[in-house]
Design a protein around this nucleic acid. Structure first.
Length: 819
RNA sequence: GCGGAUGUGGCGGAAUUGGCAGACGCGCUGGCCUUAGGAGCCAGUGGUUUUACCGUGGGGGUUCGAAUCCCUUCAUCCGCACCA
């Protein structure tokens, strides 16, 4: 028997899998289909073992499902547009297309070296015209439905990336990519009307019962639905109204002033004849110019200014002052809030600072509230006071009656507002899919006709960003005729957010070569939704929300027959080193290449899976890898023992026990994989089995187990480990005389009858503490058990002269004697 | 502030329908084999004042019995954050 040579074995099988097309599936064969999908990566130069975890997990699932008889689709592609390639290009002069191509081939090599296989015939690359043609097509479809629109708005601007960002891409007021402080800029930009789908995105989450709660909660919070009332406040000395949204209509009688956001569109009109006008506009301009970080600093004192105008609180006819404040958000609600200082802490602080009136309208049941003496707002429940005919009602029940009253008297209407805002998809950068719009002076924004797609991204030489898209300077790109009137026109020069590219790629895998449509409808309807989606939790909001949105739009347009793209979602944890995320700058990156070279891909895979529950973060340990290597060699040496025919002295008991263990292991491994991907415990179960084999082989080479039995056990082990260590399993499979791939064999099934021994070892407790264990026949009745236990000398001794209060007997499980 | 998660040996982690805490692996100790071992095999390995007691972040409770259930508290991590 030769030593274990990982390289030879692994190269051999990696080639074979490709030659035989193990992972290739035909879209038309949908019987027992299983769509296993990993989030497609951005092509970066070198992968580390943390990235590997994602691909290995998916590969395990795909291979396991194959052995369960499923027709498994496991594709891979590249989220290939985006900033890093472009930034690198600016730095080193290599065109993004070229560096992307290079990175893709490097990554493919790495995936191959891990033994991670895909149906490469379906590879999609989002920066290729045959792909982005259909990204542009999706844009056009949204435009047709009025779901893509251009508007001037205050948007998040990253000065370092020199582009706008979606709200989802702003983290703690900074750019998610480069951390620079995000500025507010008023620009005309393209948006997707995702807010139209807020309700569906929220309510359809009840279909997602196989998604992690955490991800669903994050999406719920992001969508942020709240229901309340839009209240109209007539402006004093004007015909117009201002509308406020509130979730606390019960406090309306305590509203003593109103505050507008500095971005509120009516400000200029309101203050035009006010003497303090210049001062007010100065304040507005100043706050508008502040960055999100400055404005969002909680704990920072709120700033405001009186407009000199008043509005009327229609419920009691009272005139209240109208203010402008830096803490009111234009994007949420109506950009105007009614202030109830007695019952809202923010309003309370603002009122104190600017000496605005405070009026109590909910009294504390624990003691009368006095507005003069309050040091903070009262936000708990209570009974309404100073609220006219609603006095004496509990505040919560008053909400309904006040709302009814308002609707009846046309003061306000029930309303639902969302935190979610429309998805800003334009980017002022080069390396993305051009937005397929032509701007005509006469016709406005004209969509590029479908037959003219794709709008090819030109090979620009200078893509250094200068505040506008680099495409601006490419005359041949910009100058076109209007498709509508034929006059001279210009192309939209912005490109699309890369999250648009990734919001539909899972559809393209089904028909990657189709050139007369984005996908084959019938096939897509048969293969989707995705049965298992695997990726990092960092996409909990962005990518997963956008993909759900695009899926719903396609569904409503009749393009597809399902309204949720991913049936089951698994978010894997990060692998950290020295307690920190692996990164070049920290110098704690663990490269798989050297490890695979030394120990082999199977070892790296096994260790990666053994490191801990895959949904949790884990600390990488090079020592641990050696342990995995040792285990593989232990198995390899067992195969050697079969060949070298050790002297066999069959011991029936040892052999029976081994077979029982074998079937218990099949059960455990199957359940661990099927359920929550507990690969770590599945592997430890096989380790236990292997240990038991070793203990059945005597040191001097004599074996207590028959060769035939050993062969059977080893064959089953190769099947059980096949998803984890596919190369070794294939080799074992071939050595034992099987023809063809092990992945075309059936997953082992356990025999229910083989799971149980005839006798059981039962712990005997006295007052809940284990004092002895006894072996007894399985299924013994309580009476006999008690008798048997009393005969145990160790127990007898302890019970001597004492009175037993109670016997707790769980047959086959446990005995507890209470004294 | 709100929401969510986690807390178990020297380390990664098992055990979650309440029922032998520490499976499995790493590390460590000892032994065998060896010219040698950073190879392999075997044995041991939670702590202590070891007939026994104590032990799952801390404190209380329910129970014959709690890592697991309840209350309370602390710590760490993640998400959202002036959302009206």
């Amino acid at each position: 028997m030769e030593n274990y040579r990982s390289k030879e074995i692994e190269n051999k099988w990696q080639v074979k899998w490709k030659e035989t097309g193990l992972f290739n599936v035909c879209s038309k064969e949908v019987k027992d289909k299983y769509y296993c999908l990993m989030m497609f990566p951005y092509p970066s130069a070198a992968l580390h073992v943390g990235h590997g975890r994602n691909y290995i997990l998916g590969d395990v699932v795909a291979r396991y499902k194959m052995m369960r008889g499923f027709n498994v689709l496991s594709p891979m592609g590249w989220d290939a547009f985006g900033l890093p390639a472009e930034n690198a290009a600016i730095k080193n002069g290599i065109h993004p297309a070229e560096s992307t191509r290079n990175n893709i081939s490097k990554m493919k090599e790495q995936m191959d070296s891990w033994g991670v296989e895909y149906d490469w015939k379906r590879e999609v690359t989002s920066c290729m015209p045959d792909y982005y043609k259909w990204t542009q097509w999706i844009f056009l479809k949204l435009f047709e439905k009025g779901l893509a629109y251009k508007k001037k708005a205050f948007v998040n601007w990253c000065p370092s990336c020199s582009t706008v960002l979606a709200n989802e891409q702003v983290v703690d007021g900074g750019c998610e990519r480069c951390d620079s402080e995000v500025e507010q800029k008023e620009l005309e930009q393209w948006f997707f009307r995702i807010t139209d789908y807020a309700e569906k995105l929220l309510s359809d989450m009840d279909q997602l019962d196989e998604w992690p709660e955490k991800v669903k909660t994050m999406q719920q919070n992001w969508i942020g639905r709240s229901s309340g009332v839009d209240i109209n406040f007539p402006i004093d000395g004007s015909e117009k109204n201002l509308t406020c949204f509130t979730t606390r209509v019960d406090t309306i009688f305590g509203c003593t002033y109103m505050v507008l956001s500095v971005e509120h569109p009516m400000i200029e009109e309101l203050v035009q004849n006010v003497p303090e006008r210049d001062k007010i506009m100065e304040f507005v301009r100043k706050v508008r110019g502040e960055s999100k970080i400055t404005r969002m600093k909680t704990g920072e004192e709120k700033k405001g200014i009186f407009t000199g105008r008043y509005v009327v609180n229609s419920i009691n006819g009272r005139k209240i002052p109208l203010w402008i404040g830096d803490y009111v958000l234009m994007e949420y609600g109506t950009g105007a809030v009614m202030a109830v200082p007695a019952h809202d802490q923010r309003d309370f602080e603002f009122a104190k600072k600017y000496s605005l009136p405070i009026e109590v309208v909910i009294d504390d049941p624990a003691g009368h509230l006095d507005a003069e003496k309050m040091t903070e707002s009262y936000e708990k429940e209570g009974v309404l006071v100073n609220s006219d005919k609603f006095d004496g009602t509990k505040n919560l029940s008053a909400m309904e009656s006040i709302t009814d009253y308002m609707e009846k008297n046309k003061i306000g209407t029930r309303a639902i507002h969302y935190r979610l805002r429309d998805w800003l998809i334009s980017r002022q950068r080069y390396w993305g899919a051009p937005i397929p719009i032509i701007c005509c002076k006469k016709c406005g924004n004209v969509p590029v006709p479908e037959k003219d797609l794709p709008v090819i991204l030109p090979e620009v030489v200078n893509f250094r960003p200068e505040g506008e898209s680099p495409l601006k300077n490419v005359d041949s790109f910009v100058n076109v005729k209007c498709p509508s009137c034929g006059d001279d026109a210009t192309r939209e020069i912005d490109t699309m957010d890369t999250f648009v590219d990734s919001s539909w790629y899972f559809l393209r895998y089904i028909s990657p070569d189709k050139d007369d449509g984005p996908f084959d409808k019938d096939d897509v309807n048969k293969w989707l939704p995705v049965d298992q989606y695997i990726g990092g939790v960092e996409h909990a909001i962005l990518h997963l929300l956008y993909s759900r949105f695009i899926t719903k739009v396609m569904y409503d347009m009749g393009q597809i027959g399902f309204n949720e793209p991913f049936k089951r979602l698994f978010t894997q944890g990060m692998i950290v080193k020295d307690g920190a995320k692996m990164s070049k700058s920290k110098g704690n990156v663990v490269s798989p290449d050297a490890l695979i070279d030394k120990f082999g891909a199977d070892t790296v895979r096994l260790y990666t899976l053994f490191i801990g529950p895959p949904e949790k973060d884990a600390e990488w340990s090079d020592r641990g890898v050696e342990g995995a290597y040792r285990f593989i060699k232990r198995i390899w040496n067992l195969i050697g023992m079969l060949g070298s025919a050790p002297e066999v002295v069959t011991d029936k008991k040892t052999q029976d026990e081994l077979l029982i263990k074998l079937h218990q292991t099949i059960k455990k491994v199957t359940e661990d994989i099927d359920g929550q991907f507990h690969f770590n415990t599945a592997i430890s179960a096989v380790m236990e089995l292997v240990n038991q084999i070793y203990s059945g082989i005597e040191k001097n080479g004599k074996c207590l187990i028959e060769k035939k039995c050993l062969e059977e056990v080893l064959d089953t082990i190769s099947l059980l480990l096949a998803p984890f260590v596919p190369h070794l399993a294939e080799e074992m499979n071939e050595m034992s005389g099987h023809k063809g791939s092990i992945f075309r064999r059936q997953w082992p099934v356990y025999d229910e009858k083989m799971l149980e021994t005839d006798t059981v070892t039962v712990p005997i407790q006295i007052n809940g503490k284990v004092r002895s264990t006894m072996e007894m026949p399985r299924g013994l009745e309580k009476g006999s058990i008690q008798e048997l236990v009393c005969s145990d000398p160790r127990i007898k001794e302890r019970l001597d002269g004492k009175k037993v209060k109670k016997w707790i007997i769980l047959p086959d499980k446990l005995v507890n004697i209470v004294l």
